Simulated scan of single mutants.
Amino acid sequence: MSNRVILLKNKTSKLDSYENLFKQHQYDPVFLPLIKHQHIPDEAFQVLNSLEYLVNLKYIIITSQRTVECLMETILPNLCDDHKRLLLSKTVYTVGPATAGFLERIGFVNIKGGDRAGNGSILADVMIDELSVDQDICLQQEILFLVGEIRRDIIPTKLSSAGFNIREIVTYKTCPLEDNLTRFQDALKPGSWVVLFSPQGTKDILDFLKQHPHLKCNVATIGPTTEKYMLDQGVKPNVVSPKPDCLSLLHSIMP
């Protein structure tokens, strides 16, 4: 059987944690981007470039590595040093250890959630629990949620229903690449593992796998949203990683 693992995602850095860990365990990881990202920094920059806003802002929510990249590449470099230091001192809530690690690397010093919050629903519960002692302040001040153009509304819905004031600002958008299936077929070996991180851009690939069961590929996914999408498309994943990180995924697919 093949030891190839096709990761249907953009490689996040030269030292991507999935690549390093899978290679250490004699797997052959191949990254196959299905979507392209475009930063939309203007509104976020305008808001974060306001000293008055930054002074009053206490909490930020960032759940996407794409948002971290937007901050790193297009917002932080254009802020003055004082504004940058003030922004990076804010409490930032995030989902999963990977995004928490990226936030730490770009300079945030007070990161919460992370390992304790494997999805948005858990993060919202963590925030409600932790911020309840500060609720009078939070009801008056907004919590800034930096998001992608396509996102689920679990976090703002839960927090709003608990009385918190949430402001969402879009920092990036995504769209599918046109040659996803062709590149997937080029990368595929019989018996490969195929890992889905998001529904976006995967329909043709799932249809192909359904039509070619003789390839005996195993399919893994991270998170219940993508699992539900796969089931709706008639594909049952062999594995659903219990946490959105490379170690949980590795342990899930190892024999």
Rank of each mutant, 00 (worst) to 15 (best):
S2P: 10
S2Y: 05
N3G: 08
R4I: 07
R4C: 08
I6N: 00
L8K: 01
K11R: 13
L15A: 08
L15R: 11
Q24L: 09
V30H: 13
L32H: 00
L34M: 07
I35D: 01
S50T: 15
L51H: 13
L51R: 13
N56W: 08
I61H: 11
I62E: 15
Q65H: 11
R66D: 09
T67K: 12
T74W: 06
L76G: 03
L76C: 08
P77D: 03
R85C: 11
L87A: 06
K90N: 09
Y93D: 06
V95E: 12
G96Q: 01
A100F: 13
G101M: 06
E104M: 07
N110F: 04
N110Q: 06
K112R: 13
K112H: 15
G118E: 02
G120W: 00
S121P: 00
I122M: 03
I122N: 00
M127K: 02
D129K: 10
D129F: 07
Q135S: 08
Q135P: 04
D136Q: 09
Q141A: 05
Q141W: 04
I143Q: 02
I143T: 13
F145M: 11
F145A: 05
L146Q: 02
V147A: 11
V147G: 02
V147H: 01
D153M: 07
I155S: 05
I155H: 02
K158A: 14
L159C: 03
L159T: 02
F164A: 03
F164V: 04
F164E: 03
K173V: 09
T174M: 06
D179V: 02
N180W: 00
T182Q: 13
R183A: 02
A187H: 13
W193Y: 06
W193G: 00
L196M: 10
K203H: 12
L206G: 15
D207K: 07
F208A: 03
F208C: 05
L209V: 12
K210P: 09
K210Q: 14
K216C: 13
C217V: 08
C217S: 05
A220S: 13
I222N: 00
G223K: 01
P224C: 07
P224G: 09
T225E: 07
E227G: 01
Y229L: 01
Q233L: 14
K236M: 14
N238E: 08
V239W: 10
D245S: 13
D245P: 14
L249T: 03
L250M: 14
I253G: 00
M254D: 15
